[in-house]
Structures are given as structure tokens and as C-alpha cells.
Amino acid sequence: MAVVMDGDRMGKTLTRIAHEIVERNRGVEELALVGIRSRGVPLARRLARSIKEISGHDVPTGALDITLYRDDLMRHAVGAQPVVKSTDIPFSIDDRRILLVDDVLYTGRTIRAALDALIEFGRPRLIQLVVLVDRGHRELPIKADYVGKNIPTSPSQSVQVRLAEIDGRDEVEVEG
């Protein structure tokens, strides 16, 4: 087990990503952040705060639950259904530049489900992907536009992102 990112590092990484977002998108007025539950949501909120500090602009932020769009539902041999939480996107996504935010990018299936879900809400102008950690081993042709840290892993390892809002502290740990 190894901590590959501590709280201090995480804060700096997120600030750096916020700057990149502002740079690459001329004009922040069309931006909106959508965090994928669960940990994508606090990350999205932190990015919104950073972007506000940088640009003075409030970027609308929403939360997306992708459980009902997963491609592995109904395939479990044993076990109860995954818990469904609510989706809360209190703004129209039509014509907006949406920044999908998640903590770890791995196989890409979660992002595929999120894209399916997001399309039901409207027609954004474009969608970009923000992840704190990219651990490799993609199973679908999905690529992140903004990456906090690339962490090569083997499939037997697991990457745990902990956030103060949910877990009480900020860190990224690789186990196994």
C-alpha cells in the first residue's frame, strides 16, 4: 500500500487543472461541471470554486448518478442491486460545454454510462472529461481531456481516492 498523492499535492493538482480548463476554453460562461457520483461530485465543486477564484465566474455544477445506465447490471450472479442515488442537474445542458468529472478513470465503462445518461438531459455543445487519476487499462475508446496524475497499475491493484467531504481526509492510495 502506498500513498501516491497527499492532501497538499491534491490541492495543487486541482488548482492546476482549473487553470488548464480556463485556458483551453475561451470564455467560461458556457461551462458547466457535472460530477459523477460519488467522489466526482466534491471534486467538481472544488473545481468550480477554483474557477471562480481564477475567473470571477460562477460555473453551474451538477451531480450525476450513473447506476441505472451501467452495462453490468442484471449480470451479477449474487448480490443485491447496486444502490441508486439521485441525479441533480439544476440547469439546462443544451449548448453548454460540459466538464464531466470523476475521481478515477479505469476501464472507461463508467464514462460511457455517464455519456448515455447525459445525452438524455439535452444536447451539449461538447463534453470534456476531467479525472483526478488515470490508472490505465481502458476497455473502451475513452480518453480524458484533463488528468491530475497518471498512475500505471496492474489489474490486481486498486486505487482508492479519499476526499475530505466524504472520507475525512484527502489522499490517493494504491493497494496491492
Partner: peptide, 20 residues
């Protein structure tokens, strides 16, 4: 009851459908 909270929200979307 908790799952129904999430399901209620689907009825408020423009496209009231999920592929589940």
C-alpha cells in the same frame, strides 16, 4: 424508499426514461 427518491427525479426529466 431511498431508491424511489432517485426514481422520482427521472419523472422530472425531459426524457423520462433510463435503459435499466
Amino acid at each position: 424508499l431511498d431508491t424511489a427518491v432517485a426514481m422520482r427525479e427521472i419523472g422530472e426529466r425531459p426524457i423520462k426514461k433510463v435503459p435499466t
